[in-house]
Design a protein around this nucleic acid. Structure first.
Lengths: 213, 213
DNA sequence: AAACATTCCAAACATATGTTTTAAACATAC
DNA sequence: GTATGTTTAAAACATATGTTTGGAATGTTT
């Protein structure tokens, strides 16, 4: 078989464990024993642990960036030269985020947590890999972002976009822990979808906040 | 000497390396060789690596939480039963953040990055320690936060505060890298103080964003 | 059926890590 | 000056990690 069952079992186990514990804190032995495969299988199929990490990312990031590019082009075609509103733009992104993982086995929560880790737990090789692989989708998103916030100067826009990405990455990377805390305090459970829904207005308002002098 | 030079040198080196690379990715040997002390000194003075991590945190978190409590009480006394405005409250926090590290050798950026790591790289022992040690300052801040955002439900407020903390920790933790990128792109240099000034309106607007249904 | 390629497995390997041990150097008090 | 407790130094220890290896099992092709 070109894609042995083993490969998928490893990817599933790795994805879950990485999301749960981070990269350095997850050993190959944890992964292979959760996947019920031999330890050597990882190096046989992927070559190295770093390559496995990248494979885990591309499995969910590729469909996502694909879907994002398609969706953005579709909507902006429909709108002609009218630029997308900020809300619409963020809406597209969140739609793609929520849609994609359900196609694979990954939950949205693991998906987002991995994204957060990629940002935070700065593994040099990962950052490099992601930049090379997904720069086109990212640039397209940034172009729409420019059009959606014409009132901002380039510098202002730069910082606010960083704030936005930071909020998202950070919240998602600790979303589970935060949900636990909240449940403990107020006996309310918040799903990842709901967190995203809460996040969007916060971000939109922040991006459009009146400028300081 | 009660507080040998060695102890401080270890703390300085550990602080810098933790901020730069994270906890698991920083070995005791890196720390001791950067600090120019013997490997065994860490276990002698602190007992374990985990204890060292906690010591690094308390060195900068204790003065900060102290200063925050004092400052909050001072200002709220001055205002009588009038609740602090959101802007004023955030102002107090940022003032304390910017003020405290300059007393020690820590830069604001390392200070914030460590906070971010504490959140993200959730080492069980650290979370527990921080909760026990600094719950009083945190609870005081949350009380004022409640008063400053009466329009929010408890759940809404919880999440928006998390968004706010996330944005701050994340931005500050990568502020240096981001400044570099911006300078490269637009030939503009942004100081940490300016970043904070840009952050506050973003956060205030996000916190007060209209609620989704 | 034989030849070949691929996949799997148990064990070994080299290295890095946190921690402990042993002894020497040092300071301080009696 | 000796004794006592403290700090440093170098080495050893036990363990965990990523990776490699040689061969067995399995599948595919001729």
């Amino acid at each position: 078989m070109a894609h042995s069952d083993t490969v998928d079992r490893i990817l599933d186990a790795a994805e879950a464990l990485f999301a749960e514990r981070g990269f350095s804190e997850t050993s190959l032995r944890m992964i292979t024993s959760k996947a019920n495969v031999n330890l050597a299988a990882v190096n046989y199929h992927f070559g190295s642990k770093n390559a496995l990490i990248q494979a885990v990312f591309s499995r969910f990031l590729s469909p996502f960036s694909k879907s994002l590019e398609v969706e953005l082009k579709r909507i902006s075609d429909k709108h002609g030269d009218q630029p997308l509103s900020l809300e619409a733009l963020l809406g597209v992104v969140t739609t793609c985020i929520v849609k994609v993982p359900s196609q694979s086995k990954t939950g949205v929560s693991a998906f987002m947590r991995l994204l957060g880790l990629a940002y935070t737990q700065s593994q040099g090789h990962l950052r490099k890999y992601l930049e090379e692989e997904y720069s086109s989708a990212f640039k397209l998103f940034m172009k729409h972002m420019r059009d959606a916030t014409p009132q901002l100067s380039a510098v202002d826009r730069f910082w606010r976009i960083q704030f936005m990405l930071g909020t998202t990455a950070f919240t998602m990377s600790s979303s589970e822990a935060l949900s636990d805390i909240l449940e403990n305090e107020l006996q309310v459970r918040t799903s990842t979808e709901e967190i995203v829904q809460r996040l969007v207005p916060f971000l939109a308002a922040g991006l459009q906040a009146p400028l300081p002098k």
